[in-house]
Write a protein that binds this DNA or RNA. Sequence first.
DNA 1: GCTTGACCTCAACTTTGGTTTAGGTTGCAT
DNA 2: ATGCAACCTAAACCAAAGTTGAGGTCAAGC
Lengths: 155, 155
Amino acid sequence: MPDRDPAPKLLTVGEVARRSGVAVSAVHFYERKGLIGGWRSSGNQRRYGRGTLRRIAIVKVAQQLGISLAEIGRRLASLPDDRTPAKADWARLAEAWRGDLDRRIVQLTRLRDNLDGCIGCGCLSMETCPLRNPDDALAARGPGPHYLDASKPLD
Amino acid sequence: MPDRDPAPKLLTVGEVARRSGVAVSAVHFYERKGLIGGWRSSGNQRRYGRGTLRRIAIVKVAQQLGISLAEIGRRLASLPDDRTPAKADWARLAEAWRGDLDRRIVQLTRLRDNLDGCIGCGCLSMETCPLRNPDDALAARGPGPHYLDASKPLD
DNA sequence: GCTTGACCTCAACTTTGGTTTAGGTTGCAT
DNA sequence: ATGCAACCTAAACCAAAGTTGAGGTCAAGC
C-alpha cells in the first residue's frame, strides 16, 4: 500500500466550520475541550486534518443520543488523534452508544405507553395511574431526590 | 354533588417537596416560574393545595419527554389554577405531548438504525454512510448552523 | 416562653454548550 | 505594498434548571 498522500491538505478553522456545519466558535470550543486537535500555522492559525471532520460528525451524532460533550470526549480519547479513525475504532464507539440509545428508546416508549393509558384513565385515580405519583409512593422510596423514572415501575 | 371538603388541608412547601420528590428550592423555583401557584399563611409561609402535587407530577413527566419548563408552563397555563385539573385537561396535555414523544422516538429509532448500518460499513465511505456528513452536504443546505438531523435524510 | 426546625427573601453560584465582543494579527490577492 | 477577509486570544455573556448561602422570621412542642 503506497503512500498516496504526499501533502495532505490541512483545513483552516473556517473550512472545518463550513464543512462540518458548526460555527467557528464551536470549533474553538471543541478544541478547548479536547474533542478535536490540530496544528498551528507559522502565524499561529489553526490547521486541521481531515479526520477532524469525521470527529466532529461523531460528536454531533453522539449529541443526538443525548450524550454530554464530556462523555463524548472520554470516548473519543480512545481514538488515535494523529490518524484517521479506522473502522474498528468507530465500530467500538458505535456499539457502546448503541446500548445507550436502546435504553433511551425503551424508556421513552414505556413512557409513551403509560401516557396512552393515562389519556384513557383520566389520571385522576391516584391508585392506578402509572404516570402519576400516588402521592406518597416516591417519598416511600427513601431520602434524597426522586424522579419519576419510567424504567422503574412505581411499585 | 355536595361539597365534601369543608376544610381542605393545605400543604407546606416542605410537605410538597417530600411528597412530590423534588427539593424545596425546586418548589420555590417552580412557583417563581409560574408552574405552580398557592397561597400564603398569615406569617407569609407558602401553602399549597393538593392539586399542586398533581401539577408537579405533570411537570416531571413532561421533563422526561424532553420538554422545557417554559413550554411546560405554557401548556400548564391552560389548566385552571384554582381547581384540581380534570380528566379532560389532562387528556389535552397528554395528547399534545404524545405527538412530541412519537417524533422523538421515531428520530432516535432512525438514528439507531443508521448506527447499526454504520457498525457494519465502518463508516469510512463518505458517499454511502448516512450518519456521516458527506463533507459538503451540510454546507450545501444553506447558511446558518446545521445539525445532523436524523429526521431529515442527507439528500 | 423558649428553643428548634422549618420557613422566608435575595443574591450569588453551578453546569453545559456554546456565542459575542473587543482589540489585535495573518495571509492572500491585487 | 496595501487592503480586506479570515484569523487570533481573552473575557464576558447567554439560557436552562436549579442549588447554596447569608441573614432573618415563624410555628410548635415542651
